[in-house]
């Protein structure tokens, strides 16, 4: 019997939780705020779903009832992606070592 592809995705999901667990515990506490802003930015990779949804409309009717939600989601996710990565960049640039 063939394995359902869902099982593969579930495996990826479970293994990623474990990777996340170990990677995040090794994040230094002084960088917890940048951690939150960067996780926020990367979770906006949901934009790929929004793009597929937005482009599903046909040429005569670009904004149909389903693609309009895709377009709205693109805006929201884009705010997050640019905002999240840039604010993280801005914060990380401030962390400096003692000048000797």
């Amino acid at each position: 019997m063939e394995i359902d592809p869902f099982i593969f995705r579930l495996s990826i999901f479970i293994l990623s939780i474990f990777i996340g667990y170990y990677v995040v515990w090794s994040v230094t506490p002084s960088l917890h705020t940048p951690l939150m802003s960067v996780t926020n930015a990367i979770s906006s990779v949901i934009i790929v779903g929004a793009i597929i949804a937005a482009l599903a409309g046909n040429n005569e009717n670009i904004f149909n009832e389903s693609s309009i939600f895709g377009f709205l989601a693109i805006i929201l996710a884009a705010v997050n992606i640019f905002g999240g990565f840039l604010v993280t960049q801005r914060m990380l640039a401030m962390y400096k070592k003692k000048k000797k």
């Binding site: 995705r9 999901f13 939780i17 996340g20 990677v23 790929v48």
Partner: peptide, 21 residues
């Protein structure tokens, strides 16, 4: 959403962010 769209990048990211939070 990653499971719905069968998208690995979203599943991995979701799991990372979920466990981070």
């Amino acid at each position: 959403i990653g499971f719905t769209l069968e998208n690995t990048a979203l599943i991995i990211t979701g799991a990372l962010v979920g466990s981070s939070g």
